[in-house]
Nucleic acid binder design. Structure first.
Lengths: 225, 225
DNA sequence: TGATCAAAGTCATCCGATGACTTGATGATG
DNA sequence: CATCATCAAGTCATCGGATGACTTTGATCA
């Protein structure tokens, strides 16, 4: 941030107020001092305070209620909400990933081309089954296949979200329970490609769901133990 | 964003200026009219203009140079990861949101409780059908219902991602084509609740899919026109 | 030509005033 | 006592003017 060198008073005020919020000194729901008070505390004019507050309102930190006051709405940057998704349980992450896979397979079935199908078959062949060796490399090849399915959907939003999750899921798997979660075999993967090729959206999403079932079963067992 | 329902002058000014930028009428590098001029054009005071500009500066759209003027830095929001979602097409965003809705309904069907069902029914009743009036307020009530469905899934990852998208989708809708996208009626919503209540996961997700169909049809028509 | 500098243009900040809205107290009413 | 209408204080929303700081421009001059 080069802002430090030439921060305007309004920008400084914005940072000061935000610091109070993220530090928790002004907790969620708390009411801020009124504008005149803030003005005095920060040693800037009321207009400058208003500019600072307006920015924080736009960023989702604050909420102003005319006639009532200014209140803390959130103590975290809402633009980074996805970070929160990262910290959810492993099962939640898999379920979310499953949602993306299912919809992607559906869309891929509706929009597939012969070239896409050929690419999927090639990636699946390269992936192979896991037969010992470096687990991380296998996971990488496996992810390449799944990303290709998402790409086949032609939906960039799904791709972005999937990338986001696949990275963290990979980490989690490798670090913790990799041995306990079964990798669906080649046939289960091939079923997905076949369903996409037929162009039947329902079959494609159902294939993904069957595909994921054993993973969820394994996760449930882990949660019980 | 419920902000539109009772948008302050400053927020309206922010949107007006941003609209000029994203539409390309003020291209990157262009110099904006001076504050007095903007003040006259937008029929608000200069202080209000400054608040609006300050927000857009914080979002990375504008840059102010004291003594020189205000210039367009970017026509897209570069400050956050939201960029990725903003740049995807509206259709992509809806498809991604649909993926979340479908999976959430499925999980909700498997995990529902009487209280959750009652809450959903209450939210749907509060939502009502759109019968004129403030569109933004209706969208807010509609979102509350859909978020409740996601919450009923018990999956925090889905909730986070959904929040992420609903914000940008709402913005896009309100800013551009709100009138063109049909809102599914109460019955379509009620069908989802009923399906969840029966505990049949497939029916629940199918209900959501039927629910979304007319929206996609409308989007397709927009793309063709 | 090149450097200097003054003036105009523009944003930064401050101040005071008025309007609009919310909230809580007050008091009348039944 | 409970309820409701009314009112006053507190607060944000917006306005307009004024002054300072900084940049750009162009005229002036060596």
């Amino acid at each position: 941030m080069q802002t430090l060198s030439k921060a305007s008073l309004a920008e400084s005020a914005t940072q000061s107020i935000r610091a109070e919020i993220v530090s928790g000194r002004w907790s969620v729901g708390a009411k801020l001092p009124n504008e005149a008070n803030l003005s005095a505390t920060l040693s800037v004019s009321r207009g400058t305070v208003r500019e600072a507050v307006r920015v924080l309102v736009a960023q989702g930190f604050l909420e102003t209620r005319q006639g009532s006051g200014t209140y803390v709405l959130s103590s975290t940057d809402p633009s980074k909400t996805l970070d929160m998704a990262r910290r959810t349980s492993l099962r939640d992450q898999f379920e979310a990933r499953c949602a993306l896979d299912v919809e992607a397979a559906r869309l891929a079935a509706l929009r597939h081309t012969p070239k896409v199908i050929a690419d999927l078959r090639r990636l699946l062949a390269e992936r192979g089954n896991y037969e010992g060796g470096e687990k991380a490399e296998f996971i990488t090849r496996d992810l390449a296949f799944h990303k290709a399915v998402i790409a086949a959907s032609g939906n960039r939003a799904l791709m972005e979200i999937y990338d986001f999750f696949s990275a963290t899921i990979t980490e989690t798997i490798e670090a913790t329970i990799s041995a306990e979660v079964p990798e669906p075999d080649m046939q289960a993967h091939a079923d997905i490609i076949d369903a996409i090729e037929t162009g039947n959206a329902d079959n494609a999403s159902a294939a993904v769901r069957r595909f994921m079932a054993p993973v969820f079963s394994a996760l449930d067992k882990l949660l019980l133990s």
